[in-house]
Design a protein around this nucleic acid. Structure first.
Lengths: 235, 235
DNA sequence: GTCTATATGTTGATAGAC
DNA sequence: GTCTATCAACATATAGAC
């Protein structure tokens, strides 16, 4: 976004594809190390020293590139969550387009909302993105609240609108609550809290059917709330 | 536990009900202050200084009574969660007794599991217990994992067994996953993440119908998972 | 039992050499 | 750009006076 007229390099063909710019490499290494540590131990429990040590640079280098720990955190989250949410928003838009006139099937809406979280698009990066997204819901409000609302607010509103179209008879307020239940189930699953109860050995292809089960669970839950609304149980 | 033969004071009738023992009062003030701070800002983000300052005592007093920050944390959790889980276990046992021969209704099981979390038994203490329980699911694993398993493990196993009896046709592994979705929705709601989407002004009597909605949602979700199992979708 | 004083380590952030 | 050196503030925990 900042450099708009600089997308392609003008004159030098840049023959060697090797170490482009050292500064960029450092910045990237810091982002990667921070992402891993933040996702594993949370934001507050991760020190700048741990991050810079894992990245193989000094603390000052990190502060030069990002200015503060909070800024580094925000950069990491934006980097990971933006990609993730872009896919989720695109999937929701696709469903909205396919069902522009009729009510979209609730399962399709939920698949668009939940699916991208579990798709193994990138090998190591994806697992990180999930955990970071989950951390945004668990770490202390004063550090994560604003960031969470910025990153997830629009997506949640879009989702709520689409769910309301899928269940037109439901009271919007109750649907909002049902959506929060859904988000809770999602966050808890993504946080890696699944193992203790189910054996859950191979987390490799396991994700695919976890999503399917989750879609069924949440769709049925939402329909139950909608039905309760339709029966006059608004209060 | 340490003082077993000292439960009741022997000879003096203790006429004044006022300041019993100063030491006990300090210990209690520390527990209360720690509970509030832990529930609001999480364990790692709360310092001993903050706790002791809020309690009006010195840091050494806290370390005298509890020995370490982790021990204080465990004392706080045990104090709050034990009460909470005792009520939940009792409710589950009551359901199991009432339906000793036949399959218990899923809604009854869920109400026993979820209801005590939202009952306003104690005015200020209850809100704290909820938030602390939620923190145990969100704070970094290295501080909360063991404690969480100790406190919630037995309850979860009891719950899973009862759910399996309510839905005999379901595959236990899938039921376990469905139970995790339920726990996720519960934790997220208890964490106070409800407001941003629903207006949710009066949290006073609001809780009652939040539970009802949640029971409907989770029961429908679990039944959907059980039905999918019965249809042969085990894998 | 509770305090003051202190030991010892870590935190996030900065100044200035290179 | 990246480092070393250093800062003040804070952390947990302990020793010893009262």
């Amino acid at each position: 976004m900042p450099q708009s007229a600089q997308t392609a390099q003008p004159s030098p063909p840049a023959p060697a594809p090797a170490p482009r710019r050292v500064a960029d490499a450092t910045r990237e290494r810091l982002l990667s190390a921070a992402a891993h540590l933040f996702s594993e131990r949370g934001f507050v429990a991760t020190s700048m020293r741990a991050v810079t040590q894992a990245a193989g640079v000094s603390v000052s280098a990190a502060n030069y590139h990002f200015g503060s720990k909070q800024a580094l955190l925000e950069a990491v989250c934006e980097h990971h969550i933006a990609l993730l949410n872009a896919r989720r928003l695109a999937a929701l838009d696709a469903v909205a387009d396919r069902f522009a006139t009729s009510a979209p099937p609730l399962e399709e809406v939920l698949r668009a909302f939940l699916g991208p979280l579990f798709e193994p698009s990138d090998p190591g990066l994806q697992q990180c993105s999930r955990a970071i997204a989950a951390r945004l819901y668990s770490d202390p409000p004063e550090v994560a609240w604003e960031l969470r609302e910025t990153l997830f607010g629009p997506l949640r509103l879009r989702m709520l609108a689409l769910v309301a179209r899928a269940l037109p008879e439901a009271d919007p307020a109750q649907l909002g609550l049902a959506l929060q239940f859904t988000v809770g189930a999602m966050v808890h699953s993504v946080s890696g809290n699944l193992e203790p109860v189910s054996g859950a050995a191979g987390s490799a292809s396991n994700d695919a059917w976890t999503v399917e089960l989750m879609i069924d669970y949440c769709a049925a839950g939402m329909r139950a709330v909608a039905t309760r609304t339709a029966l006059g149980g608004t209060r």
